[in-house]
């Protein structure tokens, strides 16, 4: 049997004005237009969104979990990037 499966799309929804789009799941559709229509039906049946992004899953590039240490560990030792690292004398405000 020949494969007639539609491509896979990742769906991102903006839940309300002022918030960013957030990944909610994926679905299959013949093209981007249909992916948006399907995403409307599958992921916003209860007013969960006001805007939809779809990206074909093939076009998504992800970091490799086995690189996680080399990618993210260097930040762990740089506590001085956080305001809590610094001592502020009592009596100082607006800082």
């Amino acid at each position: 049997m020949t494969k007639k499966e539609w491509p896979l799309w990742e769906v991102f929804i903006r839940s309300k004005a002022g918030l960013n789009h957030k990944h909610v799941g994926s679905l299959r559709a013949a093209d981007a237009h249909m992916a948006i229509e399907n995403a409307r039906d599958v992921y916003t049946r209860r007013s969960e969104g006001i805007s939809i992004w779809v990206v074909e899953s093939n076009n998504l590039v992800a970091s490799d979990p086995s690189d996680a240490d080399s990618l993210f560990e260097p930040a762990d030792s740089k506590v001085y990037r956080h305001p809590t690292f610094y001592d502020v004398p009592d009596g100082i405000s607006h800082m």
């Binding site: 007639k4 539609w6 013949a30 093209d31 237009h33």
Partner: peptide, 16 residues
């Protein structure tokens, strides 16, 4: 329902 899948693919190709 297979014809629907095929038709959607054909329509997507045409639109592209």
């Amino acid at each position: 329902g297979m014809w629907v899948r095929e038709a959607a693919n054909a329509f997507a190709a045409k639109r592209a």
